[in-house]
């Protein structure tokens, strides 16, 4: 009896690897070959990695999503993030704070003044002594120039504004300037965090998004964890979310204690991940599952 069950086990053990192999090579073999065309404009979703990048070739997260999710992003009308973009445009022109100014009082037309901004964020700020993200830059403007109250990191108004400003850079390649200030140090700190195992599951970012992108992690198709589409409309969230919200979600999933949104750790991680996607087109606001 014992021998019989043992042989059964052996039989199964032999069968399983072949099954797993055929699955990974046929159904879920890395990114697909679809092309992202938004309102007639082709947006490149992959690019050759710059020298020193740990990844051989960069793919936008869009290439790992289902056709239905991809279609949502390919049409600005169906992209649910665009209600927030509309709100962002309204806020851009709304006077707020003691100085009686709106964003447009100084920056005029966002389509001109904000083009390319999202592509180079986070960027070094001398006055702050650390890198500015979209969120901290907007709040600095609000407090110093407008005399308005700052927005919370994940406030609807903040997300609407980052989406609206980010949209003006859509299609432009991500290009961080690491030469400025101490950006390189922040990048290296982010790289350390990226490769450090944390949490009960003892995983680092790189364990999933480094060598294993394209594979399935339970029901989810692993992407490279690129940040070129943020703020992103996630179907799971039913709304927009910031890069730091995504970081936090990942850390929750690996049973780690997440850092706070806007913390130095997350800013460093944002610098590193943004630079890791150097050359990918900005897709803000993107749609993911």
């Amino acid at each position: 009896m014992q021998i019989k069950s043992a042989s059964r086990l052996v039989g199964r053990a032999l069968l399983l690897p072949t099954l797993a192999l055929s699955f990974s090579s046929v159904a879920f073999a890395g990114p697909d070959e679809n092309q992202l065309i938004i309102e007639g404009e082709t947006i490149s979703t992959d690019t050759k990695a710059a020298a020193g990048n740990p990844l051989p070739h960069l793919y936008s997260g869009w290439r790992f999503r289902s056709i239905e999710t991809q279609a949502l992003q390919a049409d600005d009308f169906e992209n649910p993030a665009f209600t927030a973009v509309d709100t962002g445009e309204e806020l851009w022109n709304t006077v707020d704070g003691s100085a009686g100014k709106s964003c447009s009082s100084c920056h005029n037309d966002a389509a001109e003044s904000m083009a390319g901004v999202r592509a180079k964020m986070p960027s070094w700020s001398d006055s702050l002594g650390k890198p500015h993200t979209m969120e901290t830059q907007i709040n600095a403007c609000r407090e110093e120039q407008m005399g308005a109250e700052k927005w919370k990191w994940e406030a609807q108004d903040m997300l609407a504004m980052t989406a609206y400003v980010g949209l003006q850079s859509r299609g432009m390649p991500v290009a961080l300037d690491l030469e400025k200030g101490e950006m390189q140090d922040w990048h290296d700190k982010g790289e350390d965090l990226y490769n450090t195992r944390v949490g009960q599951l003892n995983l680092s970012c790189a364990n999933c998004h480094g060598g294993n992108f394209g594979k399935m992690i339970r029901a989810d198709h692993l992407s490279q964890g690129q940040t070129n589409g943020f703020p992103v409309y996630r179907l799971k969230w039913g709304g927009l979310g910031s890069i730091h919200r995504r970081f936090k979600g990942c850390m929750d999933n690996i049973r780690a204690t997440p850092y706070k949104r806007g913390s130095d750790e997350f800013i460093a991680l944002e610098v590193y991940t943004a630079n890791r996607g150097q050359g990918l087109s900005v897709e803000t606001p993107s749609v993911r599952n």
Binding site: F77, F82, D86, T87, E90, A160
Partner: peptide, 8 residues
């Protein structure tokens, strides 16, 4: 946001 805006 309070403003009601249609899109077509």
């Amino acid at each position: 946001m309070a403003k009601i805006k249609p899109r077509v």
